[in-house]
């Protein structure tokens, strides 16, 4: 009968079962290994497609590895090469531009959209549907659609020239000054809906009484936004911030479809550079080294973000 009691070896702590110990004791408990059986599929996938590749990535970063040439152990050469790689520097800078450029489109604008959509109005669901539509469509189709918007004689150039902002149509995707902003616009436009939904979830948790009493105290809509909505949204802003960092560092498909990293590397993202090194130029070892460094940077950023959110929570509670 040792099996029957063994589940109680589990983590000791504030156990709910103390409230009704006699009832618990009578129950036939499951074998101790049963929970682990439920985890077998997920852990198998984890080991094969995450743990094993992670170890490989670590190893690969120290090799000159390509599919065509013999593999050579090169010590730190890949990492030294990173320091002197102008394209990598460009890609890293671009990724920083993506990270900062996407902030207003994913952290600020969606909050305003969510505030607008949080009104009690008829047919508000139709607007929610339309704002969210780009999220469920594929990035490939979205990028293709924007090709027509960005065309020399497309609607965007028509709008800009007829307002008089520009005299000549701009080749948004072929001009080094505009190409990265075009990608940022497409990426932000596509993901805005999902960020909006995160904020909407937060807004619906705010009690209407707060707004009522603020109204009675004479606070206008902007003051209510500034002093009630935004402070209460801080935890959600931190969530969107974390997600934005992830999204911005993973930009790939839009670049692949719209610019292929060009013109003159002006839209080259880290993801696109890694992919292109590994699968177009077959420098897998070097690409792995870059992945590894990027990985460490992202972990540090995530930890930093977490630390900030923890300290904020302590400050408010």
């Amino acid at each position: 009968m040792s099996v029957a009691t063994s589940t109680r070896r589990g983590p000791a702590g504030p156990d709910v079962s103390t409230a009704q110990p006699r009832k618990r004791a009578k129950l036939r408990e499951f074998h101790w290994f049963v929970p682990y059986l439920f985890l077998v599929p997920v852990m198998m996938l984890f080991v094969v497609f995450f743990a094993w590749p992670a170890v490989l990535a670590l190893q690969l970063a120290f090799y000159d590895y390509s599919i065509v040439n013999p593999t050579v152990f090169v010590w730190w050469d890949n990492f030294v090469h990173m320091v002197n790689d102008p394209r990598l520097r460009r890609a890293a800078l671009n990724s920083l531009v993506y990270l900062i450029g996407l902030l207003p489109l994913t952290v600020v604008v969606p909050l305003l959209l969510a505030v607008l959509l949080n009104q009690k109005l008829r047919a508000i669901g139709i607007f929610r549907f339309m704002y969210y539509l780009p999220v469920v469509t594929s990035m490939v189709a979205v990028a293709v659609a924007w090709r027509y918007v960005f065309h020399d004689l497309g609607i965007l150039n028509w709008a800009l020239t007829s307002i008089g902002i520009v005299d000549q149509p701009i080749q948004f995707l072929l001009d080094q000054r505009t190409s990265i902003w075009a990608i940022i616009l497409v990426e932000g436009w596509k993901s805005m809906g999902s960020y909006m939904l995160i904020y909407l979830a937060g807004l619906q948790a705010i009690s209407a009484d707060l707004y009522e009493s603020a109204k009675i105290d004479g606070a206008g809509p902007i003051q209510r936004l500034r002093h009630i909505t935004v402070p209460l949204m801080v935890p959600f802003i931190l969530v969107t911030l974390t997600l934005e960092m992830q999204d911005a560092t993973q930009i790939f498909t839009s670049v692949y479809v719209l610019t292929a990293g060009g013109p003159a590397d002006s839209t080259l993202s880290l993801g696109y550079y890694i992919w292109s090194l590994a699968f177009e130029q077959f420098q897998m070892g070097y690409a792995s080294a870059i992945s590894l460094v990027l990985w460490i940077v992202l972990i540090l950023m995530a930890v930093g973000n977490y630390a900030v959110s923890r300290s904020k929570r302590f400050a408010t509670s």
Binding site: F49, L56, L60, A287, L292, L294, W295, A302
Partner: peptide, 16 residues
């Protein structure tokens, strides 16, 4: 695994 960007795992996962 959710916080691991796809491009980081691309090469090793392809090799696996």
């Amino acid at each position: 695994t959710m916080f691991l960007p796809a491009e980081v795992m691309l090469i090793p996962r392809y090799l696996v």
